[in-house]
Design a protein around this nucleic acid. Sequence first.
RNA 1: AGGUGAUUAGCUCAAUUGGUAGAGCAUCUCUUUUACAAGGAGAAGGUUGAUGGUUCAAAUCCAUUAUCACCUACCA
Length: 873
Amino acid sequence: MHNRYNPNYFEKIIYKLWEKNNTFYTKKNNKKINNFSIIMPPPNITGNLHIGHAFQQIIMDIIIRYKKMKGKNTTWIMGTDHAGIATQILVEKKINVLNKTISDKYLLSEIWKWKKKYEKKIHKQTKILGSSVDWSKIHFTLDKYFSYAVKKAFIKLYKNNLIYKTKKIVHWDKKARTVLSDLEINNKKTILKNWYIKYPLQNKKKKYLVIATTRPETILGDVALAVHPKDKRYINYINKKVINPLNNNIIQVISDDYIKPQKGTGCMKITPAHDFHDFDIAQRHKLNMINILNLNGTIKKKSDLYNYKGKKITSNTINLNNNAKLINLNTKKVRKKIIKILKKKKLLKKIEKVKSTIPYSNKTNCVIEPILTNQWYIKMSSLSLKAIDYIKQDKIIFYPNKYKKICLSWMYNIKDWCISRQIKWGHKIPIWYNKKKEIFIGLNKKDIKTKYKHIKINELKQEKSVLDTWFSSSLYSFVCLGWPKKNNNKFKNFYPISLVVSGFDIIFFWISRMIMMSLYLTKKIPFKKVFITGLIRDEKGAKMSKSIGNVIDPLDLIKGISLNELIHKRTKNLINKNNIKKIKLNTKKTFPNGIKPHGIDALRFMLASINTPNIKINLNLNILKNSYHFCNKLWNACRYIYQNIKPPKKIKIHFSSLVDQWIINKINYLIIRYKKYLYSYRTDLLCKEIFIFIKYHFCDWYIEFIKIKKNNHQVLFIIHKILKFIHPITPFITEFIWQKFTKHKLIISKNQLLSKEPFPCIIKHINKKNIKIISLIKKIIIISRKIKSKNLNKLINLYIFNIPLDIKQILYQNKCLFKISSSYINKIFLFHKIKNLTNLKKKVKINKIFFRKKKIFYHKEKYFLIFAEMVER
RNA sequence: AGGUGAUUAGCUCAAUUGGUAGAGCAUCUCUUUUACAAGGAGAAGGUUGAUGGUUCAAAUCCAUUAUCACCUACCA
């Protein structure tokens, strides 16, 4: 063993060893009680695993390794997610779609290539992290069996009238050219301009109604003005007609309770096709709707007129009289032109700055355009009611408990879920149309033919949209266990899944939808417990993102990286090149010497240590450094044993020695704590206890104590236990040491692998008096060290009074233990109770100064009184 | 606007549900000793954001307040 812990040298070998020996293999077992399963949120195939993935994986791994050692039959379900829009965008960028016309087939084949590449990378990274997932069955949310399950689920929902198609206003991502659900939108605060624009009255020249708008380009889609029915300023104008200042359309002034008189001018323009509230108002007043935007967010050549039910009436050329060319321009340019026109017409009253929030796509980061489209929706209210019931009754338990509230409040206010997306990469919707645009549903064309015999197959055309990625994700928990196949053992034995570990950012996206879908489709809860981790931020608390350039790759923490390489990594492939300087500076500041290699176990220990119940967890590399020290400490302690203890001929376990009893007591305590901490997923507290145990109890005292008596075989028994209970947290180093020790017969066990060992149990028959004596000795030594640090180069005679007789005897017998500080303790004198303690105290007080002058110190403790006398060397 | 949480040593965070406020990093002093100098020994550092209440006892429970963060919704 090297004198320094050098993890990169053995970690690869260890994981292969586990794989070879089927360590993660789950036995078939029909006793359901003994089964324990975890489902990993499937990482997106959009890229490598980041530190957040590593964080969650390691918490899961600690729990599953612990459960396995405790004798549970474990399964950890692993897979990847096809991540519809995000993946397609990345591949499109890679093959530079904008400059080419490509077929769907080509695009899909390129995406599959991408998938293969990144799935492989993700699996490799997962192995590097030491995650003991069940590799016998790896999932991908776009595999054939998944596709079958998705269709089955869709058909069932559709047949029970929980899925419908409708034309309404949606959040439109104009870059990806698809609809998004309300969850996929980020609102950003910005300062906008509010334009006050005059709408001339039809019959009274030179009279106007003034509206305020932040989006003047949508004036082309206006169908009405609206005021509050009781607003005295406008009461006379209700039902009068005004002229659209741009295209001279005649529109009516209506009244609606929604209008708030104190906002803007109290008079609002109604653009039902491009604003959510206007859409609702149009529904109430049965107003027509005018769509003026192309799907890429530019102005249409012809605007489409719909009735309030969404039925198309006509298309009209967008006509502005003065030949302004607006067609195919984006909103920014249109806005500029329109403002110019209005200024010329003298219809612009004033411009004001307002604080506002603008919706952005969290996929492409472009501004969301509200637009009228036909989409598929799931009715959520009945599904959520059931889920609410189960969560309220604590049939699914959230850790920390606060997330239960968050999840419930979302479910109470749930909106229908828009599940169709206008992209290519995803599950196709199992809907077909004939020439009359009638709807047919089935697994495939043949399936439809058997159901509807009059249908001509050639006529059928499948719905072009695909399903939202989260639709398949919402089925993930039970599809991974074989649903909808009936009579399958995996589902029977492992469903509901014991635990899900996830970040709070996907409670709505994934956790809650999985609960709803599972209750509906399988009549069972998907999982019993949900542990929500915090989100890892950078050292300043900022979100990690590529554009800010503060992302940390877990591999860099494991293997180390130089400053230059790190800067290169963070600045290459940046979209916004203005940030490069900033990123360089910040990286230099936070990592002036780059990142040293720390090894997987140190990373694991660090991540487990920062797993506090906080929502926001700042990554602190000091803790990583500390974790490395922990591993180094463990390594060197084992190295000492390895070098100094000879393999015993016979192993006799007897814990007569004070020191052994003392350390076993500490181990017992830790084993009890272990269960408690893991039950509440507090790996941070667990790590703290283990750290204190190894560094302070085991290394600082126990090993120092055993140095006194050579070839003490009891230590082998102790280290055997220690390796086992640290194993779930730092599996590599413990397994490596285990291998070394078993080879040299320092540890003898039936199992070749530590990972197959059972978790240690408590050792009984500990004499508490013995434990007291060790703490007493420790205290005496600590006091002597303090005295010594003030009187360097001197020896100390210790006079210890007031020790009970029985303890005094044992102390005498174990006087050798004081040898730890033999370099400065000259002599120790032990005394039984002093006849008159108060007298002595008085003496001490009176003579305090005298004592100091003579360099004699005293110290009072609960059980003893200690005097120290300085002696020249 | 509503909701959730946070405020503890110079910094980053704990405190296992009310019982002596603890770690790491940084600082200072000492220490090259055969497990470990990325060590070891010792020291210094705190009116737990503020005010009030309940209690034998409050960082922890309650009320008020300040600041910050996040989530949801809205903004003409």
